[in-house]
């Protein structure tokens, strides 16, 4: 397999100190760091529907040893995540080597090879009272009036068990201390979390950051359509600022102070 060969080369030629990919263990594909010492382990390298935020592991490694050269098995979303982490100075692009997997549909590969691309089934009750995973934010906005939008989202948010899975799995969440655990913003020990503030805090922090990998939605045990929510976040950022996180290595509009103001505050409609 070409990928295995390429990864082995990276290690053997000392281009990287560690290569992050997946390996099957006890029947599960789990992330694994392959090293030169155990280079033959790479024969068990797996590429499949399973996804983990390998970039997050890379960040943790880089924190411990900023000089460490890291190879990564990179899907399309990983590429975006890496771009974003370069932008925010969490990883040094000079220390990262990627072996890319083309998994999102493109002219070259018409089918997607990713859990993210398989439409998630939405149950009837969810369809009637909650938010459809596969709805587009624009359609959602167009098809429901404001009261209904609120009640549907509140239905979803109230299921939250505050497990922090969405944050823990997020490849672009790198803060050392998270606002979602800030006692002044989110009262500790209260379940379910106060709606919608808990989710809006996270949504706001995702503005200009979310690279639309969908891992949060996959991880959520309460089936909250988070990817759909953050796609709205991305739509808003892209509509207002023309910025698509992870597209390029380019600073977020929220971390640049301009010299001129082009946006004008929206008028108050009564």
């Amino acid at each position: 397999m070409d990928m295995v060969k390429a990864a082995k080369e990276l290690l053997l030629q000392d281009k990287v100190d560690i290569f992050l990919g997946y390996r099957k263990l006890d029947g599960h594909q789990i992330p694994h760091g392959f090293t030169k010492a155990h280079v033959d382990d790479l024969d068990q390298l797996e590429i499949s529907l399973n996804r983990y935020p390998l970039e997050k592991i890379a960040c943790d490694l880089a924190q411990k040893d900023p000089a460490l050269k890291i190879g990564i098995l990179a899907r399309d979303c990983s590429q975006r995540a890496l771009n974003l982490l370069y932008t925010w100075d969490q990883l040094n692009p000079e220390n990262i080597e990627t072996l890319t997997v083309n998994c999102c549909p493109s002219p070259l590969s018409t089918h997607g090879d990713c859990s993210y691309l398989t439409p998630k089934p939405t149950g009837d009750y969810k369809k009637a009272h909650g938010v459809d995973y596969n709805d587009s934010p624009k359609d959602f906005l167009a098809n429901h009036d404001s009261g209904e939008r609120l009640s549907r989202w509140m239905y979803e948010f109230q299921k939250c068990i505050k497990c922090y899975g969405c944050r823990n799995v997020c490849p672009v969440c790198f803060c050392k201390e998270c606002s979602l655990e800030h006692p002044n913003l989110v009262e500790p020990g209260v379940l379910p979390a106060e709606v919608p503030i808990f989710h809006l805090i996270r949504a706001t922090h995702m503005a200009g950051r979310c690279i639309d990998c969908g891992l949060c939605e996959d991880a959520c045990p309460a089936h909250i359509p988070l990817r759909m929510l953050y796609r709205e976040v991305n739509d808003a950022v892209s509509d207002i600022f023309g910025y698509v996180p992870g597209d390029h290595i380019e600073k977020s509009p929220f971390s640049i102070i301009g010299k001129t103001v082009e946006l004008t505050p929206a008028p108050m409609d009564v």
Binding site: P66, W88, D89, S252
Partner: peptide
């Protein structure tokens, strides 16, 4: 410094150029 992730989101918003990155400590 314990909380700073070194993302440098603050540097560009400072109108007085008062913030620098300490590369060593990140």
């Amino acid at each position: 410094e314990q909380l700073c992730s070194g993302c440098q989101g603050c540097i560009e918003v400072c109108p007085y150029n008062a913030i620098q990155m300490n590369e060593k400590k990140h």
